[in-house]
Design a protein around this nucleic acid. Structure first.
Lengths: 210, 210
DNA sequence: AAAGATAGTAATTGATTACTTTCTAAAATC
DNA sequence: GATTTTAGAAAGTAATCAATTACTATCTTT
């Protein structure tokens, strides 16, 4: 008995959830590539081998983590957009919601970037890929709605606008990871989105606040 | 004598350059975190231990690679901007030049992202950081020039515009890494930049192409 | 051409890592 | 309350990797 006491036995399901959360925690502090099964176990007050009662291998753990992230992120974004009618306002809410989520869970982008960066196609990578596609589809539909209600000009390049939307978020997150300063990013976001919005929205003579 | 012949002796400097290029090559195909000294040596037709004649440790290799990238990228961008007077046009040229460079050397963003993603501050990370800062300063100056010549509105948020510029490129590159399709990115870039440009430029009644 | 410096090989080392095996404690089931 | 099933500990294994060591071939210099 080295330190602490033996942890209460948990069911497989409970332990799997706890594992995912442990990884998300660790990813907020460390390079995901350096997260070892030993580190995960330690963070859970478990021995390393115990993890393999609940996951066949490490890859399966990562897959579970990516899935958790994808679901939570999409839920958060949809919740942020809820009840808003104007497509432009929905986009803004999604933008802010996305950034809020990332700021609250800095491990998420680190893991996603780390996973997607790899050359070979792992199951985890495929999951992340699918999420991005779903995101793009949602945005595209939103842009089309914006066009038909006049908020966006008909000649707007929808694909480019979608790419720029996602790219902008990824870039912002990347910059904040580099700077190690999530708070700064959250402050920048509304100002950055304002420029994006001006880039896609129907031209206005003036908004009157000057 | 297993395969091939013993390589010609090279000077320390020559071997160091060759090493950097080998790493850049490998990074285009593989996750940088997985590039081992053995893999580098193999790609150079050398034995693994030989590398340590020229570098004190692996970290020093990575430092050299990042430096190489930073220099080449900045040179390419400045070259692209050369001789252009309009600040907006310079920005567009830098944007395209940056993307061209990345498309030609896909290993570069992979290495930079991989390095910057890490939590702890390595010398390599500090180099990458410095390059980003230099980039931002250059852009900010450009934007100020744009304001004074009327191409950009005085009320434009310069910092946000800079952040968005860099973020957009990072995001685009990230997306192309994910998709594994650099060609697609190069096709998208002008259309994406057009939106950014509209977001920051002084309002125009119409360009006449309609 | 001899001597010294340098760049290479081949083999090894110590640390780390994902995964396994053996055994024990705790629940769950009967 | 006995039995069976499951979750965990503890120790071990094979593989991998950066770095080192002992030695050798190849340049350079005089």
């Amino acid at each position: 008995m080295r330190s602490g006491t033996r942890p209460k036995n948990l069911s497989a399901d409970e332990r799997r959830s706890a594992t995912v959360e442990a990884v998300v925690d660790l990813a907020a502090l460390t390079n995901p590539a350096e997260i070892t099964t030993a580190a995960i176990a330690k963070h859970m007050n478990l021995t390393q081998g115990a993890l393999f009662r609940h996951f066949p291998n490490k890859e399966a753990i990562w897959q579970a983590v990516i899935k958790w992230m994808a679901v939570r992120l999409m839920v958060q974004i949809e919740k942020a957009a809820e009840g808003i009618r104007s497509p432009l306002e929905v986009m803004q809410a999604m933008f802010l919601g996305h950034v809020d989520f990332v700021a609250a869970h800095p491990g998420v982008p680190r893991m996603l970037f780390g996973e997607l960066q790899g050359a070979k196609t792992t199951p985890a990578k495929r999951l992340a890929h699918a999420m991005l596609k779903q995101y793009a589809t949602r945005l595209n539909a939103l842009i089309e709605t914006g066009k038909s209600c006049g908020e966006l000009p008909l000649e707007l390049d929808s694909d480019a606008a979608t790419t720029l939307f996602i790219g902008t978020i990824q870039g912002l997150v990347m910059q904040s990871l580099i700077a190690g300063d999530m708070a700064q990013m959250r402050a920048d976001v509304p100002r950055v989105f304002a420029i994006y919005r001006r880039g896609i929205a129907t031209a206005q003579v003036d908004k009157g606040d000057r």
